[in-house]
Design a protein around this nucleic acid. Structure first.
Lengths: 124, 124
DNA sequence: CAGAATCCCAGCCGATACTG
DNA sequence: CAGTATCGGCTGGGATTCTG
């Protein structure tokens, strides 16, 4: 029997900081969420409205992950029906900036990528 | 800058260039793969050896996706057992650079993130 | 050596329903 | 309003087997 010893992850371990970042921003909603919050603090249902198509489950889950990683804060106001405001942290703001570099790369090179795909798909 | 109205595919449509990039680099092996190939062209089994823990399936699949997007090239040599060399393209090299910005962000802020996680996990 | 094909599981994610 | 809980589909990804 092939036992693996301590194969926890090699260069690919959870200790790899890059992996931590990609696990955060690689999911479906984080980038869009940061994109909204970087402009202003926003409440739960308002976020739900902005990110058309998100489910409460994923919104809550994504926000919780962001909060846990110190990228957004959650503040509760004791209004009549309680309201909760999410805001980006300074740390989150720096990440949003870095993610923006990615977005810029994408916009600059999307045509080239699209052409590569066509070439690839149109061959024997 | 043009306002996009188009609510059919949300802001989250496949047309979104940022989404295309995240779908490419967000997977488990792309970043590591680029990290190896950015140094020198490498053959299939050599890649498999370098990325300890990757399966042939995922390696082949990831390479194919990279090739389709024009980020790496695949060249076959008619040696005795045939050998195949994968190399990063200029386009792929620019992406690798951008990804590196992400890695730098991660390394600079991993401590702060870790502390945020501890604080989050250690509360009632 | 370089891969394709198959099986299977864990986790993401959406839809829906329920709570304070 | 702001969530949590549960069910189920889909897919990323690993292990294994087979081919040129």
């Amino acid at each position: 029997m092939a036992m693996k010893k301590e194969r926890k992850g090699d260069a690919y371990s959870a200790r790899c900081p890059a992996r931590l970042v990609l696990d955060q921003i690689g999911d479906k909603w984080t980038v869009l969420l940061l994109g909204v919050l970087v402009k202003q603090p926003t409440r739960f249902n308002e976020l739900k409205r902005r990110l058309q198509g998100v489910s409460q489950k994923m919104l809550g889950q994504t926000l919780k992950k962001l909060e846990r990683n110190g990228l957004v804060t959650r503040q509760v106001f004791a209004t009549v029906p309680v309201s909760v405001e999410y805001a980006i942290t300074p740390l989150g703001r720096t990440l949003a900036g870095t993610v923006d570099a990615l977005r810029q790369w994408a916009e600059q090179h999307i045509d080239e990528v699209a052409r590569a795909q066509e070439r690839f798909d149109a061959r024997p």
